[in-house]
Design a binder for these strands. Structure first.
Lengths: 126, 126
DNA sequence: TGGGGTACTTACCTTTAGGTTAGTGGGGTT
DNA sequence: AACCCCACTAACCTAAAGGTAAGTACCCCA
C-alpha cells in the first residue's frame, strides 16, 4: 500500500474530505467520472493528459478503497474494466462544486492581474 | 521558497482551489481565523495542536502570498503580529463549507461501520 | 511478422512535504 | 540569576508522493 495512516482520526470534516481528495489527479478523476458516468481505464488515461499509468491505477485503487468509485471487471479478452462513481463519490463531487467556482473566479482574477502587468510593462517609461 | 511551481496553469477551478488549500494545516488555519477574526502567531500555534513553528510560518507566508490572509506587524516590544483573513480567504472558507459537511457525514458513517464491526466481533459464532 | 491496443505490475529514482533541533534578542516573571 | 515568552529563521533529516521505464499475456489488424 502507498497510503498507510489513512482514515483519521480527523479534527474536522474538512480534514476528512481533503484527505480523500488530495492527490494530484483525484479531482480530475472525479470530474471525468461525473461528466461521463462510466469510463474505461484507457479513456480516463486519455482524459487526464500527463498522468502515468502507475498513478492512475494507484489513485483509482485508493478511491475505490475510500468508497468513491466502483471498479467492474468483465472477464473478456481483451480485458475490459469500467469505473464509475458511487453515491458517496457523486455527493463529494457536488460538495466540491462551490470550491470549483471559487477556484475559477480566482483564475480569472489572476489572468486579469497578468494582463495588467503586461500592460504596465508595455507602457513607455516617462 | 518552498513551493516553486505554484499558480498553474490549472486545468479547472478545483485544481486551483486545491493547490491553495492543500497543506497539512491550511484548512485548520482558515477555520481558526474565520472563527476568531484576528489571531496572533502564538494563539494560532496553540489552536493547532501538533503544528511546528516552521510549518505554521511557512503556511501563513504561503497563504499571505496567495492573498488569503493579511499579516500585520506592530513595531512593539515584545513583537506583536496579527493574522486575519482577506475577503478572498473568507470566500474560500465559505466555499469549503459543503466539503466540510460531506466530510463530517463521512466520519459519522465510518464510526457507525466501526461500531458494526465491533458488534460483529463480539457476537458469539453460531 | 511486426506493431498496436487491453489493463495493469514492478523496480528504481527524484522531488517535495513535513518534522526536529537549535539559535536570535530583548523584555517580563520568579 | 535563571527561565519563559514573543515571532521567527536556518540547517538538517526522513518519509511520502510522484515520475520513468520496462515487463506481462493475450488479442486484432495489416
Amino acid at each position: 500500500m502507498t497510503k498507510s495512516a489513512r482514515q483519521g482520526p480527523y479534527i474536522c470534516g474538512i480534514d476528512a474530505a481533503l484527505d480523500v481528495v488530495s492527490g494530484k489527479w483525484k479531482g480530475l478523476i472525479l470530474w471525468e467520472l461525473d461528466e461521463h458516468g462510466i469510463r474505461r481505464f484507457a479513456e480516463l488515461r486519455r482524459g487526464l493528459p500527463g498522468v502515468s499509468e502507475k498513478m492512475l491505477t494507484q489513485h483509482l485503487r485508493e478511491m475505490e478503497h475510500d468508497g468513491l468509485v466502483v471498479r467492474t471487471v468483465y472477464a473478456e479478452v481483451p480485458p475490459r474494466v469500467e469505473y464509475s462513481l458511487t453515491d458517496e463519490g457523486r455527493a463529494l463531487n457536488a460538495a466540491l462544486a462551490p470550491l470549483g467556482q471559487w477556484g475559477s473566479s480566482r483564475i480569472r482574477r489572476q489572468q486579469i492581474q497578468m494582463v495588467d502587468h503586461q500592460d504596465a510593462a508595455a507602457m513607455p517609461r516617462p
